[in-house]
């Protein structure tokens, strides 16, 4: 099962599950806040607004069918995620010669 929610052919739900992502007015990216049931994407985004943004203004909402989400497999940690070890050159702090030079 690669999807976050649960739904299989033995128990098809009347309304499918959607994952909700919200970016607050002060935020830079959408954050997963939870899920809800809705018959289609139009109702999903409206339900998400009612359920997850009652206390905030001017937010951006994304809804995605749960089954559309592919999650990385934590069992494959070793191979799947590149090891940062030995690749310090990817980090700015590696470069010390330019310390003290403005705007770098």
């Amino acid at each position: 099962m690669s999807a976050p929610g649960a739904s299989d052919s033995a128990h098809p739900e009347t309304w499918p599950l959607w994952e909700v992502f919200v970016r607050s007015s002060r935020g830079l990216s959408h954050v997963h806040v939870g899920s809800l049931h809705a018959p289609d994407e139009t109702m999903a985004v409206r339900n998400a607004r009612d359920l997850y943004t009652r206390r905030s203004e001017g937010v951006s909402i994304w809804v995605v069918p749960s089954e559309a989400i592919t999650a990385s497999d934590p069992d494959a940690k070793g191979a799947f995620f590149e090891s940062p070890a030995g690749k310090n050159y990817r980090h700015a702090t590696y470069y010390t010669a330019s310390e003290g030079v403005k705007h770098l």
Binding site: P4, A6, S7, H11, T14, L17, S35, H37
Partner: peptide, 9 residues
Amino acid sequence: QTLGITRDE
């Protein structure tokens, strides 16, 4: 639901 049970159930 993340544990494998549906809302309907």
